[in-house]
Write a protein that binds this DNA or RNA. Structure first.
Lengths: 202, 202
DNA sequence: AAATCTCCCTAACAATCGTTAGAGAGGTTC
DNA sequence: GAACCTCTCTAACGATTGTTAGGGAGATTT
């Protein structure tokens, strides 16, 4: 990892725990192992580090959304296959592993959570990433499932609201609360599984 | 309002927007209209302001929880009265007006949200106030409703989980996101009403 | 071989940080 | 009237903040 990436990595870890203003250039440089003036060779000022992190996150998210689009264009599942398979697969693989649990994304979500109240740009990104996008993705997935006839079309809106609210609550409870440990990840996954099982199988 | 209360009021407003470390003693004193040394007559140091806010919040919450206990000891509703009346009343009056919408509590919740990642005391309080307590209160209310026979007992756990997750999601989406405007409050209340209506009446 | 570019350093700048010593004005108690 | 208490002030302290000027070692280009 080059110096620039190292700075961004260390800065994100510190920003997401203590907040942007509370972290000093010297804190970051001390952890990276460089002098302050070296940091200013790679970034024009402190704000530039934050902006670069936001930019990196935006393109990361764009990549994920494109990927989700491809997934939902999959041909309909074979008959006989339980319909929770596809939804769980989508939810597990894309929403969770490469997003909520992904170390970079998880720290960025924490940073947005912390900074949203005095940084309008981050507030908008926070709302989009945690509320708008997941809801629209789930809606799109379930609308496609509906065309295969597994749900009555008119119930879809409330089914998605139910899933979305449950997963959002769990996200705040387990993934954006304290350190992201394996235990929290397991607790999160267990609750999602229980919910999906009860809602779509039992 | 005396000087001490004014300091706490201004400090909470600033802490909840920019975070504890990012707010300086001079910021607070400038807004209150006093010199820094005067602040140190009322508080022994900066941390003491935060501790006093936490203490105030704790006793505020204790009062609310006691009140909720009294409410749930109400005699069973008359037959024929729709069971959503009581739940909506409880939810509206106690969870919302005197908690989530209450200016002091709302700012404290934002402060806990911001500081939870590097203040274990606030993290624990945050988890209790936003997740544990509301869930237990709702569970207790609905268990009492069940004794009147309006719900099958065995479904209660999932009914409460459904309500709790929905309200938690809405709380983060509308009440702990941006400025707490009348529009957000209305949007929150509308979504709660729609959910309750659909879930328990339609 | 000379010149340029890349990346890091030492050393310092003015501004701001949390905090404190000590004084003074106004009211209450001996 | 002297002593005391409550509350605010002026003025300063050492430490830390973001940032910059200028230099040097090593690799690359001319």
């Amino acid at each position: 990892m080059n110096t620039r990436d190292k700075i961004m990595d260390v800065a994100l870890n510190m920003f997401s725990e203590r907040g942007y203003e509370a972290v000093s250039i010297r804190d970051i440089c001390g952890e990276v192992g460089i002098k302050e003036s070296t940091l200013y060779y790679h970034f024009k000022n402190k704000k530039d580090i934050l902006d670069s992190l936001i930019e990196k996150f935006r393109s990361h998210i764009d990549g994920l959304l494109t990927h989700v689009d491809e997934i939902t264009e999959m041909p309909p599942q074979k008959k006989g296959k339980k319909h929770d398979d596809i939804s769980l697969k989508m939810v597990d693989s894309y929403m969770i592993d490469s997003y909520l649990f992904d170390p970079f994304c998880n720290l960025m979500l924490r940073l947005m959570m912390i900074e949203q109240f005095h940084n309008e740009e981050l507030r908008v990104l926070y709302e989009k990433t945690l509320f708008t996008d997941p809801y629209e993705i789930q809606m799109s997935v379930f609308k496609k499932l509906a065309t295969t006839g597994v749900f009555p079309e008119k119930e879809i809106e409330w089914i998605v609201k139910e899933i979305h609210s449950y997963m959002t609550m769990l996200t705040f409870k387990y993934l954006l609360n304290g350190e992201l440990t394996k235990e929290r990840k397991k607790a999160y996954q267990k609750e999602v599984h229980d919910f999906m099982t009860r809602r779509f199988i039992a």
